[in-house]
């Protein structure tokens, strides 16, 4: 336990002293401690930034959309669990896990080709509308492309935890249910799902903790002038203004703002889960 604690303190809590620059006008020459205090100035600047609500709206629409697809991994895990042929089961698992190991750049390259004018989905769009189209040039489609491509990449990987939870479901319980005349669907509904419900709820609560943390890299790679209306999120703004613009105090304040919202979301989700199911992280 002690080595783990030391690790957490050094690598997770230690660097957090840097948060102080969110409240300072950080100057590299003066350092963390020597820079001038500015209080909540950077937070005020962010919430009064003219595009603040647009950033929040875009970020939330993508992250809530992602959250809505949360059951996909559970459903896939339940389906895989029902496969009786071991070889086929392993093949399905391998095929669904594989995309997880693609780098974001490669994955975005594939997505760009797939939804491009000459891509499969671009052609499909043309089949229904009469004209092929680059779907990344249609702002309304951006969040769908972002979410479903992410789901395609990670849904298989996401099943691992549920499959291990399903492996822990008592076989005796399942056999009893079958003897009582339960169909496969009824076994899933009344045995498997209730048994893995704590895992599902905890994973859901954890997911709500990243509600304002839409991944920067993928959005940046899929972004273009025509979809900026919907693809400009807090993460891309922070990158522009912070890492590229060198406004480190301001971007730290935005990061801290994000984290506070995320923590609040975890607390709320935990409270709700606990109230209705009695299950929570703490």
């Amino acid at each position: 336990m002690l080595p783990a604690l030391i690790y957490i303190v050094i690598f997770n809590y230690g660097p957090m002293y840097g948060i102080i620059i969110a409240f300072k006008d950080y100057k590299p020459k003066l350092g963390y401690w020597g820079s001038e205090w500015v209080g909540l100035e950077h937070f005020r600047r962010f919430v009064t930034y003219p595009e603040f609500w647009k950033l929040i709206k875009n970020t939330l629409s993508i992250s809530l959309y992602s959250l809505a697809t949360f059951p996909c991994a559970v459903i896939l895990a339940l389906l895989i669990n029902e496969i009786r042929n071991t070889r086929f089961k392993k093949t399905v698992q391998m095929v669904t896990y594989a995309p997880h190991f693609l780098s974001t750049v490669v994955m975005c390259g594939l997505v760009t080709m797939l939804v491009g004018r000459e891509g499969l989905l671009g052609h499909l769009y043309g089949y229904f509308t009469g004209e092929n189209q680059n779907l990344l040039a249609i702002p309304q489609f951006f969040s769908s492309i972002y979410v479903w491509s992410g789901k395609w990449q990670n849904v298989g990987w996401g099943t691992i935890i549920y499959l291990s939870a399903l492996a822990g479901v008592s076989q005796e319980l399942i056999d009893s249910a079958r003897i009582d005349g339960a169909s496969r669907l009824q076994v899933i509904r009344y045995v498997n799902v209730p048994c893995i419900l704590p895992t599902i709820i905890i994973m859901f609560i954890m997911d709500t903790g990243s509600i304002l943390s839409v991944g920067f890299e993928k959005i940046f790679l899929l972004q273009n002038a025509l979809n900026m209306d919907t693809s400009r999120v807090i993460a891309t703004y922070t990158y522009d203004i912070g890492l590229m613009g060198g406004q480190f105090s301001y971007s730290t304040a935005i990061g801290l703002f994000n984290n506070l919202v995320n923590i609040a979301m975890i607390l709320i989700a935990n409270k709700i889960a606990k109230k209705f199911s009695g299950i929570g992280i703490w």
Binding site: Y49, P50, E51, A225, L226, M228, R232, I241, Q247
Partner: peptide
Amino acid sequence: QVEYTDLKTVLKNYVETETAKFVVGQ
């Protein structure tokens, strides 16, 4: 500097996005 940067980022993004929309007829 701060006022300039804030105005610049807002205008730049808006001009880029809206110009693209005008060009393609959106």
